[in-house]
Amino acid sequence: MKNQMYSSSTANQAMPFSEQEDAKQKRRQERNMARGLKNNKQQVILLSAIWIILMGGGYLLANHYIENSRAYIDARLQESQAANLKQMAKIEEQVGKLSTELSTVQAGLGSIQEGLQMTGETLGGTDKTKQALTTRIDQLNKQLTELRTSLKKLEDAARAW
């Protein structure tokens, strides 16, 4: 070691002062460059870690948002289906009532026609009676047609649901 120190100091003494300074400056630059590379590596690692953390956080945030949106949509669909079922039940109830009314009107028409036949035979052709009965039959036929139309619309609405 002493020989090395001696030889280096001897070499340093043999070199002119500016060359010694140039050599020292060159060594400093090499050390600074090595430190700079080390710092650059640390910065790259730090930036990579930050980038990975940001990407992971973004993924988790997006996943959370998607799950919440999916839950909200599912809840709204269930509410809509429940409302549709209630409306279907109401429509089916109305269709049942209209069917009952239609049956009643048909039975009434049948009895009126029977009564007309009997009345026509017993009255022997009174025009006023026949005209009144015909008017009533026409009214009942119109009501029957309207009821059938309403029933058809309700059945179509029920099928649409």
Rank of each mutant, 00 (worst) to 15 (best):
2 K>W: 06
2 K>N: 14
2 K>D: 12
4 Q>H: 09
4 Q>D: 15
5 M>F: 04
6 Y>D: 11
17 F>K: 14
17 F>G: 13
18 S>W: 02
18 S>Q: 15
19 E>T: 12
19 E>K: 00
21 E>R: 11
22 D>F: 09
23 A>L: 13
23 A>W: 13
26 K>Q: 13
27 R>T: 11
27 R>Y: 13
30 E>Q: 01
30 E>G: 02
31 R>S: 00
33 M>W: 15
34 A>R: 15
36 G>I: 01
37 L>T: 03
40 N>D: 09
44 V>G: 08
47 L>W: 05
48 S>R: 15
48 S>H: 04
49 A>F: 08
49 A>V: 06
50 I>Q: 10
51 W>L: 12
51 W>A: 12
53 I>D: 08
53 I>R: 02
54 L>A: 10
55 M>V: 14
56 G>T: 05
56 G>Y: 11
60 L>S: 11
61 L>I: 14
63 N>P: 03
64 H>C: 05
65 Y>R: 07
67 E>F: 12
69 S>H: 10
70 R>W: 08
74 D>E: 01
77 L>D: 10
78 Q>F: 05
80 S>N: 12
81 Q>R: 14
82 A>I: 15
82 A>S: 08
85 L>W: 02
85 L>P: 04
88 M>I: 09
92 E>M: 14
92 E>Q: 09
94 Q>R: 11
94 Q>V: 09
95 V>C: 06
97 K>T: 14
99 S>T: 15
103 S>H: 12
104 T>K: 11
109 L>N: 01
109 L>Q: 07
112 I>C: 05
112 I>M: 02
113 Q>I: 01
113 Q>M: 03
115 G>Y: 02
115 G>Q: 01
116 L>C: 04
118 M>S: 12
123 L>R: 00
123 L>M: 06
124 G>S: 03
127 D>L: 06
131 Q>Y: 11
132 A>F: 05
133 L>Q: 01
135 T>L: 00
135 T>K: 02
139 Q>V: 04
139 Q>E: 01
144 L>S: 02
144 L>R: 06
151 L>H: 04
152 K>A: 13
155 E>A: 11
156 D>N: 10
157 A>P: 00
158 A>K: 07
160 A>S: 14
161 W>I: 15
